[in-house]
Design a protein around this nucleic acid. Sequence first.
DNA 1: CGTGACGTTGAATGCTGTCAATCATTGTGG
DNA 2: CCACAATGATTGACAGCATTCAACGTCACG
Lengths: 212, 212
Amino acid sequence: MSNSRSFVDERTIKRALAALRWGPIRFRRDKVIACEGEAGDYMFLVVSRVVRSCKTFANGNRNVVAFYLPGDLLGWSDENYSLSVEAASEALVLFLKRSTLMSLAASELSVAGWLLDATTTQFCRAQKHALLLSLTAKSRFATFLTDLMRRSGRANTIDLPMSHRDIADHLGLSIESLSRTITDMQRSGIIARSGRRTLDVENNHLLERASR
Amino acid sequence: MSNSRSFVDERTIKRALAALRWGPIRFRRDKVIACEGEAGDYMFLVVSRVVRSCKTFANGNRNVVAFYLPGDLLGWSDENYSLSVEAASEALVLFLKRSTLMSLAASELSVAGWLLDATTTQFCRAQKHALLLSLTAKSRFATFLTDLMRRSGRANTIDLPMSHRDIADHLGLSIESLSRTITDMQRSGIIARSGRRTLDVENNHLLERASR
DNA sequence: CGTGACGTTGAATGCTGTCAATCATTGTGG
DNA sequence: CCACAATGATTGACAGCATTCAACGTCACG
């Protein structure tokens, strides 16, 4: 889904990242990688599993703004000023010093292009997520599933790497509503549960119809 | 609210933009600037008033993903592949050919930095908008007001440049709910109407409290 | 085997949407 | 200049979807 701008050179980027990286560091589930309101000197490149960025409100409500899969870069300045970054499952994360990365971008065009690509992709993703939030519970979850399948490169089996709690907070639902939705889609023959955290898509066509 | 990266040079950018720009063109209210599903060869720089990007669903529902004020750049590749760009009020828009802009970014670091700034800002804005959508109607509108005041540089008087319809579709509410919310906040002494499309903030403290 | 975290299910409440009627404003044409 | 239509906004009644509260079931782990 990358925009593949002409001036993005993979090798140069990898070489550059190798120079300024710190880690990768392994985080246990629910461990905080960067706290809400922190300075934000670092950006994070997900290496394995899943990272979430979320906001917790005064009343205890939580909101998972986005999930980040391997290859995703996060921690854009004001982003992690207001959001906390946490491991949604066991996760490996690479730390990149922001200032170094930015000055590198100022001299290496390929790095600048890579950053632009990353922000653009995530901007579009955030907009789609906003669109998702005005759909029904069923449509939200169906869309979430298709998105996750596409991003993780799976075809029919989805190993949910995050908890129901996380998914519910991401889709703007209560865990009960999410649970009911899943049961409902199961009864409709759209999906089936094959493991504790594993879903099988039984009918791709129905799933697509449900996401509207 | 810009990130003011060191390599962003205003003069260079303005000079560069002057070379590749087309327009500015004036659009009447509700006129389509770029249609959903179009190729998207151009990006758009808002010069005056307001532009909206929105998605219309098969059932007739519409969703205003974002409003763009003067100085905002929009039309990031896959963004306007799925969204249409329209004038939310009388608007002046500058057209920038994407390919030219991108190759310019590949040679002019200041342009690349400017683009990165713009995407980052809008990415954060989109995330905040997603957060907004899981609040109550009152909180959504209160947040919208404070945001609009900050972005347009106003203190206590807000001249809503877009229709209630647009605002409702942006906040994920029906026009009726929006209307009720406004009346409610008026009765609470938070805001007052001074004109058909003008609101006065009577109590800033209450407004801030309402946005949670 | 008990404990705790997580998920499921049911009943009741509540916020928002829908439908419908009314009012206000703007614009149009005679 | 006024009557009229058209659009947009307001208000009320009612329905619906999701939340909340609560109880129960299930699984992992000590």
